[in-house]
Amino acid sequence: MTNLALSLLIGVLTGAGVYLVLRAQTFPVVLGLTLMSYGVNLFLFTMGRLQTAAPAVIGAVENPTDPLPQALVLTAIVIAFAMTAFVIVLALKARAALGNDHVDGMHIPQADRVLDRKEEPRA
């Protein structure tokens, strides 16, 4: 039962993440990346198999939990957190520099011309 629930959760998180990443605005894309990283972190965690009342300490119980996926997940969480922070800042910078939050940022010809004049040519 737990297995089924977790698999569904990972699938829904990743699926929703993929859907959001394919959106045209930067904010949904960032949200999508976050959901995908949640999905993959849960997936990594379950790769150590699911057990209850089994600490990741050898000798404490007969079948200790595999500690390695927990270490991996910790690393992955930290990296994903840093990356999310970075991509949010970048999305804000793009919003400010491009004048809109479209991922291609080039969809208003008028705004484009104004911004082109502000910027040195071809740099």
């Binding site: 990443v21 930067t26 894309v29 990346l33 970075f86 991509v87 970048l90 999305a91 910078k93 793009a94 520099a97 491009l98 991922v103 291609d104 940022g105 080039m106 911004l115 910027e119 740099a123």
Partner: peptide, 15 residues
């Protein structure tokens, strides 16, 4: 450095 096109290309690259 800066630049509008660089920011846009950078966002694509990062994602």
């Amino acid at each position: 450095g800066n630049g509008r096109k660089r920011t846009r290309a950078g966002f694509h690259y990062v994602v």
